[in-house]
Design a protein around this nucleic acid. Sequence first.
DNA 1: CGCACTGTACTATTTGTCCTAGTACAGTTG
DNA 2: CAACTGTACTAGGACAAATAGTACAGTGCG
Lengths: 132, 132
Amino acid sequence: MRLRVDPTSPEPIFEQLVFRVKEAIAQGSLAGGDRLPSVRELARDASINPNTVARAYEALEAEGVIVRRQGSGCFVTEKGSALATSERKRRLDALVQRLVTEGFHLGFGARELRDALAERLSATPLPPRRDS
Amino acid sequence: MRLRVDPTSPEPIFEQLVFRVKEAIAQGSLAGGDRLPSVRELARDASINPNTVARAYEALEAEGVIVRRQGSGCFVTEKGSALATSERKRRLDALVQRLVTEGFHLGFGARELRDALAERLSATPLPPRRDS
DNA sequence: CGCACTGTACTATTTGTCCTAGTACAGTTG
DNA sequence: CAACTGTACTAGGACAAATAGTACAGTGCG
């Protein structure tokens, strides 16, 4: 469980951490019940402040991705998203719109976008979902 | 050309403007050669500071999306992305990875992601590209 | 129990960004 | 010339991010 962070990126460090954890789960390298590195351990490994790690873990818990247990550690949740269907759909649409718009300005057309997504999905299939 | 902005959003106003303009181009409601509203006019309409609009236009020009002509206005560029192929590919992959990861945590599977993208692309087809 | 670990909660400080406000200058258009 | 365009500053307020340090509270194990 090695998490890297780019201190020069304009993206806040704690947000990078949040995404890396979600990424690891979406790729199957972290699964429900798995334990994350401790706040202090991860801070030492990544050469960042423990408070920053704690902030990332706090955000992950707020999203329902992990649970934090005082004294024992942080663990990946089993359940899926707790959002209403309409809100989930809205967020997905926003993500897709982002991809389409930015992709277009990068010079990619509809087919290339579809292909890139398909390739990504077949390269590392999504782990099975455990819907609550 | 009406551009709306959400002052309560955590996303900076100037970034919202940048994306709105790119969105309009990707949807065909703005095309190469079209003129954007002036800095002061847009600022008045959206009830924001002219400096904020100027900042957005500056960012858009830095990305090659528009050109700014002192005294005459800002115009949508004809050309495509000026980035190296490898860099364009890398950015596209990052966008796709974002969609897949966040989509997964929203509870969507591979098929639903593909369908959402396909639906978006068929709803408003991308305008023809004028590659430089 | 006792110790070492875990997360949690503060305060304080520094740094950087976002946004607003105001002024001024420079190029373009009619 | 007059009225518009973008551009470039300064200044200041508000806020977020990250650091450092300290302290407290729950857990697990020898």
